[in-house]
Amino acid sequence: MNSNIWLLSFADSVAIATTLILAALGALFTERAGVLNLGIEGMLLTSAITSFLVADSTGSVWAGMLLGIVLGAVLAGIHALLTVVLRANQIVSGLALVIFGTGLANFLGKPAEGKTIKTTIEPLSFGPLSDIPGIGPVVFGQDPVTYAALLIAVVASWFLFRTRAGLEVRATGDDPATVDSQGLSVATIRIRYTLLGGALVGFGGAFHMLAQSAAWHLEATTNGVGWIALSLVVFAGWRPIRLIFGAILFGFTLQLPFTLQAEQITFIPSALMPMLPYLATLIALIALSRPSSRNILGAPKALGIPFVRDER
């Protein structure tokens, strides 16, 4: 067995995990405020193509990144308008966003079909540290966004569990009536964190495009990563730190088929390999919903339920 391939594949898992961390953190913030946004997959795609087109025409990766973030927030804004202001069904609105976003991304991406981007996000170099055999490439060979994603996750954890504003977010997701009786606006908090969540998802989509894919391919760019991010939030029990470990685990599973192929390990037919991460996620979700493990999960209690003051 070639240990180099395995090390490289671990480094790759971390890169995939970055997209997952950003997208799942976006979903986590949204859901902690009590809003379920299933539109992640559509938002990722739209942000990905936007960042691609902007980076391609301006030559600046960071300009692309910024526009990707903005587009993520704009699509989340549609969801917030429909579900928080107009009280539409959150599930249907999220699904509509997936379909709309997929169509929009493919529409905008038509001229860019098969094109490769010239400038991509380069891994940081820590000089000799990155060359340490074994841990070097994994710990010191990632790109700046990956380190930023980890930092955001840690800050998010501190924010949610150690600050007053974080408490308000969690309370809005658990017991909006009490938040309302404290004179806070449930709608404002929900809109704010749905937008923040959208921006994070947009960040993830832009990163996925600019650091990993680097070529726009119709209908195959994110390939279900948005849905895996949503399962990851459940898997992590709505906790940012647990989410990091979950993302690395999921990232490794997503990477595994390619590694096994490179190693020519063929006890599983190659066409069946791509189903592994989805099956693993499914099994994890089922295992976690056993009654004995449900209380350690801690889903926001008012998740997906529109808040209507008059009905109290």
């Binding site: 429909l82 379909i99 709309f100 169509g103 529409f107």
Partner: peptide
């Protein structure tokens, strides 16, 4: 545009 319009109509 066909798929996009489906999503837009639903929204």
């Amino acid at each position: 545009i066909g798929v996009m319009m489906q999503g837009a109509i639903l929204l």
